[in-house]
Amino acid sequence: MMRLQTDQPTRAERAAYLAEALAGLYEGPVELAPTPGGRRAALRRLRDFDPRDYARTRNDVVRRGVSLLSPYLRHGILGLAEVRDFLVTRFAPGPGLAKFVNELAWRAFWQLVYAEKGEAVHQDLEPAKVSLRRERGVPADVEQAATGLVCLDTALRELYTDGYMHNHARMWVAAYLQHWRGIDWRDGAALFYRHLLDGDPASNSLSWQWIASTFSHKPYFFNRENVERFSGGAYCATCPLAREGCPFDASYEELAVRLFAE
């Protein structure tokens, strides 16, 4: 065991020191996410968050009406109850606030499942409802955010550099890796867990299982129309595959046949 210093004056000095002190315990470059640790920063984000439009804007990957509180909630720097209390006593009841509390409850639910199932959350909790190819290992183009699909590469780059990904983009990336590329959800979940500042054994593995259909009634997948709608068309506008070769450019019925017919 080794005692770490706690008195470096600047963030850069702290980072340089920690990189040496924790040598062998991390993988990849010594880079910082812009999100600062600690409760002061968490409280600033909480104070800046306005939930009134949340129900309408939360799914938009570009406009983002989300709180960005997840790293703090995940590490107990903020509690679910105090966040609820703060918002409910400051904002009048409405669909935005109700939806936000509903999302907080997702976290509470996954924690409940984790308390009950323990390490089993990292394996299939139910049989898949469709046939999954389950190849092992994350493809290199995904590791490098170089799939050529702007909607996914933008999300992956943010994951690797900022340690964050918007919820809707997490759903796209997770569905793409599993249903289009045939990768086992456990490898996708491990990739997310390594990078997300909010990386949480329960929320992460159980969300991947929800998309796989091993903890839901059916698999989640999406199409191009969904990407265009929830990004205001921004990704497709610059995507080299938009005119030809977009793997998402089909109806849900067609995609279901393409992805899941044996």
């Binding site: 065991m1 080794m2 005692r3 770490l4 706690t6 963030r11 702290r14 980072a15 920690l18 990189a19 002190a21 924790l22 315990l25 991390y26 993988e27 990849g28 470059p29 010594v30 880079e31 910082l32 996410a33 999100t35 600062p36 640790g37 600690g38 409760r39 002061r40 790293p71 590490h75 720097i77 690797y160 340690g163 867990y193 390594r194 990078h195 997300l196 500042l197 990386g199």
Partner: peptide
């Protein structure tokens, strides 16, 4: 095999939590 940014977030959070106390960080 976590990324460094995750560990740094924990370190920064721990330092702030322990500020002004008889606090220690170990590996």
């Amino acid at each position: 095999r976590l990324s460094f940014k995750r560990l740094f977030f924990l370190y920064e959070s721990a330092l702030e939590a322990l500020e002004g106390r008889n606090g220690f960080v170990y590996r």
